[in-house]
Amino acid sequence: MDTILSKYRSHLVKFQPLIALVLLCIGISLMSDKFMTVDNGWNVMRQISVNICISVGMTLVVLTSGIDLSVGSVLALCGAITAGLLKFGIEVPSNNLFVGFTLLGAILAGLIAGSLLGLFNGWTVTKFKVPPFVATLAMLTIARGLTMLYTKGFPISNLGDSFAYIGTGWFLGIPVPVWVSAVVIVIAVIITQKTALGRYIYAIGGNESASKLSGINISKIKMIVYSIAGVLSAVGGIMVTSRLDSAQPNAGMSYELDAIAAVVIGGTSLSGGRGTIMGTVLGAIIIGVLNNGLVLLNVSPFWQQVVKGGVILLAVIIDRANAKND
């Protein structure tokens, strides 16, 4: 009897985010006839694509028992770098040289910038033993400042149809951002489930000392993980910039909170070592559906914040209860 109950409980815990999502969808569709429509479905999917990308990166970091508060600012800086290089290139007056960037070149530059910023986060965390919370909080401010410096506080707009396609286009009847996030999810699932890197990430989060003793290069793995989080923030930044056809200096503000919320709601333990990418994806969908539902139900934006905060708190309390029972 105990075995059956325990099995039942473990299934319930496993499917908690999915059950929450289904209940949320049923609840909102009962209150608004605009919710369960194809158009609104694509709208929600397009909106959550950015959060999925940065949440997947955040999941990897949290699995190592770290946190990355800089994702929103890195997103803004990488979006601005991509837009700036695409539109203005680089001028080298001393050699009377202009280096122009194609769409591919600008996107690659944005991704490389994200990777380097993430790598810097990983380096400060591992080399100087700065707590991830503090190191990435510093990067949050640094990257936002650099974005303001690079853009001089103004948006960089009119980036062309090809670039706009990334954020607004459709491919095989599905919005391009949804394809991008799907590719990100697949790669992240493969990394976490099928590679040595994935096993090391879980091992470090589960017990860092034991992992070190078993020969895992902790610093290298952490730097790789923060670097991946940086790249995924850059992917999000490129999608946001493309969707708006404009790199906004204040883009991505408080995106880190939505990403952390998706990770926590998705069942990833903030103390590391436990959680899944698919859980985070469900968490991001729950946040997106919640946002969409509150807007459709004409809930005041102030109350929306309160409700979102409450949901996050509830998710953490449930996570704690699960951890205690485990």
Binding site: E91, L97, F98, V99, G100, T102, L104, G105
Partner: peptide
Amino acid sequence: FVLSQSVYFKKLSDV
């Protein structure tokens, strides 16, 4: 190959 498809060069004065 990727670099050649990513950047191009011009005289700054012309631009």
